[in-house]
Design a protein around this nucleic acid. Structure first.
Length: 566
RNA sequence: GCGCCUGUAGCUCAACCGGAUAGAGCAACGGCCUUCUAAGCCGUAGGUUGCAGGUUCGAGUCCUGCCAGGCGCGCCA
């Protein structure tokens, strides 16, 4: 409907522009007004146009209305305020959405295949410890976004980049080795910088079960740490996969940074960049505002990212000649591109924000595409308990893990709460509130609405009332304000999903569900489904079934369960 | 010092890429269960959108400058 209206307006605009001999590409956009008095849809095009053809907005609106041919279903249109065109629809035609929802069921809100593929990379937590709460938010947001994009017709591929190369793996291996010695009765002290967590001991125990301490001791250091590193990464990735599973999240591919190094792809990439004249040997100025211990100006291999919007050129190789994380990451993104995805989306922690420009710059240099990858930054979570912050220090080893939180408050509460705010705003997550089963906890509000509708449907069934075929239901009987409000809400679900997909904002679905639930609760208190009038019962039952379906669809996108009773 | 994000009701956040009278939820106060689940509903109160300018028919939204918080700032990932 929205599209039909926009097309009709677009044609009127085109003819008006032609008449005035103005060439302009102006796009018509409809909005749903906040206030009912402003119609079902509103359009500001007359005001946008006013400047272009030098007429008053109000008059422009009048000229548009004179030449427009509305599609069926429009009751009327009027000019309001400074020049808005407010469109009123026939309510009967809006009510048809109920039948459509029942027909389409789980498909309602979803879009036709776009033929486009999206690779979405998220979580990518280092395999040096279990996931913490911040990772959990990125995981939930990424997962929900993947669902949203899939629903809107993209072919979605989910990927986890394992940072299993580099110095921190060495530290992990040494930490494990120290714990192994401890398990063999050696007294130890944990040096500064080692991983102190309990989980390191668990990893050591696992390794003990399959490997002989004696033979590990006899190995030379390089061999031993290389083996222990690999074993520890495997063990940690098992833990992380379990952590993810506790939230109901899975991936199509876990991509290993180590294998990227070993395959020689990074060297190939650097050679390729050299051929294109994008690298040079140079010296970077010292970083400002921050003391860098032992800073030495040194010549290194630099990527000309400044040619593509970055502030400084970025190093590709460390002093010992091994590639930087940046070099590996370009190779990784280049690889994703080469695998044929139309779009690359990365969900990163906000602490990687400073990194976006350089990766996009590098990718632009390689592919010519701007804003690739599209990066979604997820802000941190402040974990609270009864209003007081819970300290999460990874260094001290006493941080609260994601798993502990999921075990304590439950998957649905964690997921929904992580999705109620925009990703780029910080989130206070109070463990006690998330556990409470009351109105402070939005997840129950929505689930309760679903359960409530199910309860009504059960009750009708118990009374021997069967739902009629939706074609036989007289939807025009739904005429009160609350019914109209519910139908309008149901009608907007596809638009909400679409906006969530276009703007990479899955939180919109959660907010929508809270609004839909509110409309349902209001309706419930004001009107009864079980009334004398059998035809009205059928009309209201159809409405209830549609509401249940849409809540179910929305919760499914968010990965939250839709209980039939609570 | 530089870059990015954020600043909206007492608190946590919205506001549909510049639209109409800035909205929800908590917290506060007052009501509503003999009726399909009160994990709910209704009502009241609460605002100079951090500050100051600018752009235009119109600014919470865009630009500039301040103020405050967060994150980041060679050879860590």
């Amino acid at each position: 409907m929205k599209q039909k209206l926009e097309m009709a307006l677009q044609q009127a605009v085109a003819s008006l522009l032609e008449e005035h001999g103005v060439e302009a590409d102006i796009k018509v956009a409809l909005t749903r007004p906040r206030q009912k008095a402003h119609g079902d849809y509103a359009c500001n095009i007359a005001m946008t146009l006013a400047g272009r053809i030098k007429q008053k907005p109000h008059d422009v609106a009048g000229m548009l209305l004179e030449r427009i041919e509305w599609p069926a279903g429009v009751e009327g249109a009027e000019i309001a305020g400074p020049g808005f065109i407010n469109i009123q629809l026939h309510h009967a035609s809006e009510m048809d959405v109920l039948k459509r929802i029942i027909d389409e069921a789980g498909e309602y809100g979803r879009a036709e295949a776009t033929g486009q593929s999206v690779n979405i990379e998220f979580v990518s937590a280092n395999p040096t410890g279990p996931m913490h709460v911040g990772h959990g938010r990125g995981a939930v947001v990424g997962d929900a976004l993947a669902h949203v994009l899939a629903a809107r017709g993209f072919d979605v591929f989910r990927e986890y980049y394992i940072n299993d190369a580099g110095a921190q793996i060495g530290v992990l291996a040494e930490s494990v080795w120290l714990r192994l010695r401890e398990l063999n009765g050696e007294p130890i002290t944990l040096p500064e910088g080692f991983y102190p967590g309990e989980y390191v001991i668990d990893v050591a125990r696992q390794i003990m079960a399959h490997h002989d301490f004696e033979s590990l001791s006899k190995m030379d250091e390089t061999e031993r740490f290389s083996l222990l590193g690999a074993l520890a990464i495997n063990a940690m990735m098992d833990v992380i996969r379990d952590d993810l599973a506790s939230l109901g999240i899975s991936f199509d591919l876990f991509y290993s940074e180590r294998q990227l190094h070993e395959s020689g792809r990074i060297q190939e990439l650097i050679e390729h960049l050299k051929d294109k004249g994008l690298v040079y040997a140079g010296v970077l100025p010292p970083p400002k505002g921050k003391e860098v211990a032992g800073y030495q100006p040194v010549e290194q291999l630099l990527f000309r990212t400044t040619d593509f919007g970055d502030d400084v050129d970025r190093p590709l190789a460390k002093q010992d000649g091994s590639p930087t994380y940046f070099a590996a990451d370009i190779a990784y993104h280049e690889d994703k591109q080469a695998r044929g995805f139309d779009r690359l989306v990365d969900v990163w922690g906000a602490d990687h924000g400073g990194y976006v420009t350089r990766v996009q710059a590098a990718m632009q240099a390689l592919t010519g595409k701007k804003k690739c990858p599209e990066v979604m930054l997820v802000q941190m979570v402040n974990l609270m308990r009864e209003g007081k912050p819970v300290r999460m220090s990874k260094r001290a080893g006493a941080f609260v893990t994601l798993r502990e939180v999921v075990d304590e408050v439950g998957r649905d509460a964690v997921r929904f709460n992580f999705l109620t705010r925009r990703a780029e705003s910080q989130l206070d997550f109070d463990l006690e509130v998330a556990k409470q089963k009351n109105d402070e906890n939005p997840v129950y509000y929505v689930q309760y609405a679903h359960a409530r509708v199910c309860s009504i449907m059960r009750k009708l069934r118990d009374e021997g009332i069967k739902a009629a075929d939706s074609d036989d239901v007289d939807v025009s009987r739904l005429a009160n304000d609350e019914e109209k409000a519910l139908v309008a809400k149901l009608l907007s679900y596809p638009e909400v999903l679409d906006k969530a997909a276009v703007r990479l904002e899955p939180y919109r679905v959660a907010v929508y569900l809270m609004e839909l639930a509110a409309s349902l609760h209001t309706y419930y208190h004001k009107h009864r489904v079980m009334v004398e009038d059998a035809a009205l019962v059928q009309a209201r039952l159809l409405l209830m079934r549609a509401v249940r379906q849409v809540i179910d669809n929305g919760l499914d996108i968010l990965g939250v369960s839709a209980p039939e009773e609570m």
